[in-house]
């Protein structure tokens, strides 16, 4: 589609406005925390605009309207009032408001759903713990019920990562040896994107995750499905894929619940076929992407611990892909 932009101002506006929506925008809010942050941003932007107009107005007044000498008393008042007292009051107000928000955004759970997310180079280990004490381990995807506050507990196994879903809430560090907390309360359903917001190594930019906010009933059904064991292979091709999966040693690092694969080093793959993306938010979830990931792991995500299985024949890669795709 050809776009005609009438003026440079129009071009600037298009660039600015283009950043205001989308699945990873802090201004396209879908959660309580993000709403507070967006309100703060707009308030600060308006305040900054007023201050800027005031300063430029004074500069014009002093250089154009009344360029002569001003009284020392007025100059002193302006310097002390505008340069010391006013910024101190404004910054104190902003700091206090920001600090007031923190306890609410990190409120601990009172028997609600708890989601533990562990950052690892360069993927996310996700564990859901329901009020009845059941847990299930997933990876690289977050699903949440709309309108319910969920406590997210954040950890790291290696270096400092940061958990950030801009549409839902602010970012928070994931520090090795510590558990940090964040309360997420989505306000509308939709698909969003989260990302690691702290440089954590060579594939930091490839460490993302899709976030789906669902109706509570759909979420409950999905979570129940995640507790289920993996579906056994149902076609000759997926059966061959399952045999290859075990023969190539994939089960040493990955778990597929309901099979002999019980590795815990890499992501749990029990329901990987049902996830919205592969490789922590970087590939679409289809057979071709599985084959590419398995054969060219180090090219798709440089530095990753999983070895590339480029020695496999194309037909083997597709069989593995079809098996993994069938794990819905």
């Amino acid at each position: 589609m050809a776009l005609r932009i009438a003026s440079p101002t129009g071009a600037v506006l298009v660039v600015l406005v283009a950043a205001c929506d989308g699945p990873q925008s802090a201004l396209d809010v879908a959660g309580d925390g993000a709403t507070r942050i967006a309100d703060l941003f707009w308030g600060m932007a308006a305040g900054a605009a007023v201050i800027w107009i005031g300063v430029v107005g004074l500069a014009v007044y002093a250089t154009r309207v009344r360029p002569g000498e001003h009284s020392g008393r007025t100059a002193k008042l302006l310097l002390i009032g505008g340069g010391v007292v006013f910024p101190t009051i404004v910054l104190t107000g902003l700091l206090s408001y920001g600090l007031l928000l923190i306890p609410e955004l990190r409120e601990p759970s009172d028997g609600r759903l708890i989601v533990s997310v562990t950052g690892e180079q360069w993927w996310w280990r996700v564990r859901y713990e329901t009020a009845d004490g059941r847990t299930v381990e997933l990876a690289n995807e977050l699903r949440l019920p709309v309108g319910e506050a969920v406590e997210v507990r954040l950890e790291s196994r290696d270096v400092i990562h940061a958990f950030w879903v801009p549409s839902l809430a602010g970012k928070i560090d994931m520090v090795p040896g510590r558990v940090t907390r964040l309360s997420l309360k989505p306000t509308r359903t939709g698909e969003f994107r989260g990302a690691c917001a702290e440089y954590c190594g060579e594939s930091h930019a490839l460490m993302a995750f899709p976030v789906a906010v669902m109706e509570p009933a759909a979420f409950a059904a999905w979570l129940e499905d995640q507790h289920a064991l993996a579906a056994p292979p149902s076609t000759p091709e997926t059966e061959r894929g399952a045999r290859l999966f075990m023969a190539m040693g994939c089960g040493s690092c990955h778990a597929v619940r309901g099979t002999a694969a019980a590795g815990t080093i890499g992501p749990d793959l029990t329901h990987i076929g049902g996830r919205a993306s592969l490789g922590a938010g970087i590939l679409v979830n289809d057979v071709d992407a599985f084959a590419r990931w398995i054969a060219e792991t180090d090219h798709v995500k440089p530095g990753v611990r999983m070895p590339a299985f480029g020695m496999l024949a194309e037909s083997d890669l597709r069989a593995l892909g079809q098996y993994l795709e069938s794990l819905q």
């Binding site: 010391v84 101190t88 910054l91 104190t92 700091l95 206090s96 600090l99 007031l100 923190i102 306890p103 990190r106 601990p108 940090t180 907390r181």
Partner: peptide, 22 residues
């Protein structure tokens, strides 16, 4: 001294608003 006094207040403000180690 004025700058340091403001900085001390700012350094102490988190303790005024946050009651939990979380």
């Amino acid at each position: 001294a004025g700058l340091s006094a403001v900085a001390v207040v700012y350094g102490a403000l988190p303790a005024a608003f946050i009651a939990s180690c979380h």
